[in-house]
Design a protein around this nucleic acid. Sequence first.
DNA 1: AAAGACTGCAACCGCCAAAAT
DNA 2: AATTTTGGCGGTTGCAGTCTT
Length: 278
Amino acid sequence: MGRAPCCSKVGLHRGPWTPREDTLLSKYIQTHGEGQWRSLPKKAGLLRCGKSCRLRWMNYLRPDIKRGNISPDEDDLIIRMHSLLGNRWSLIAGRLPGRTDNEIKNYWNTYLSKKLRNQGTDPNTHKKLPIVQDDQLKKKNKSKKQKNKSKPTKKFVEPKKPIIHLPKPIRITASFSLSRNHSFELINSSSTSTINGGTSSSQEKLDQFQFLVDGDDQGHDFVNNIGAEFECQSSLPTGNGTLEQLYEEYLQLLKSTTEENNEDIDQELASFAESLLN
DNA sequence: AAAGACTGCAACCGCCAAAAT
DNA sequence: AATTTTGGCGGTTGCAGTCTT
C-alpha cells in the first residue's frame, strides 16, 4: 500500500492566499501552536491542504521572518555557505536569522547565481569558469529575434538586485522563545568582552559565530507563551549589530587561511563546516 | 499603445526520513 | 519488524508585473 496523500485535494483552495485565510491561519496558530498540519486546516476553518498551511506559515506569516532587501554581508554569507553546503537551503537559511529557505533559494536562483556567473565563477562548483560568457551571450543573442543586426551586442549587466516587497504588517499577539533570539541575547551579553576585546581564540570566534547564527533546531515554541506583541517585521539585529562584527571575524578567519595556510585555522574552518552539517 | 518576452517570487509537487502505530 | 503518517526539503511551475520592441 502506497503512501496516502497528505490530504484530499477535492474542494480545497489553491493558489495565492487571501488576507482572510492568512488571518485565520495566524489566529489559529497563535492559539494552538504549530504542528498537526494535517488536521489544522479543518480546525482553523481553512479549505487548504495542511502542507499548504505549513508552507504559508513558514515562508510568509511567521512573525520572526525578516523581510526586506538582503544586505551585501548576507549575500557574501550565502555564497560562502553555498560553497560549503551546496543547495541545502534550509541549512543556509538556518544560519541567516529571519530568512526562509524559500527566500534564499529564490534569491540564489534569481540574483546570486547570475552575479557569480558574471564574476566568472561557476555558481554550482564555485570554481572559476573558463571564458565562455561571451560565446554564450552570442548564442543567446543569436537565438533571439535579430530584427536589428546593426545593434551592438548586449553586454551582460550586473543583475538588478531584487526588491523584496514588504507584506502588510500582520500584528500578532504572542511571544516566542526562539533559540535564535536567545543566541543574540547571549552574544550581545558576551560581545564586549570576547569580540571587541580581541582576545578570543579562532575556535571561540567560530563557536560564537556558529552560536549566533545557529538555527532553531529544537523547533519553535512560538505560541506557548502568550504575552508580547510584535509585528511581522523582524526586530532581530541587523546590519550594524553584532552579526556584522562576528561576520567580520569570520571573514578575517577565512582570509587568514588563504594568506597563512595555517593548518589550525583550516581545521577550525573544517569543523565549522562540519558543525553546519550536524 | 500594444504585443510579446522576460523576470521574480509564491506556491505546489514529489520524494525522503523520522515518528507513530 | 512492518506499515502508515507526518513534517520537512529541494526542485519546479504558474502567474503577475515589468521591460523591450
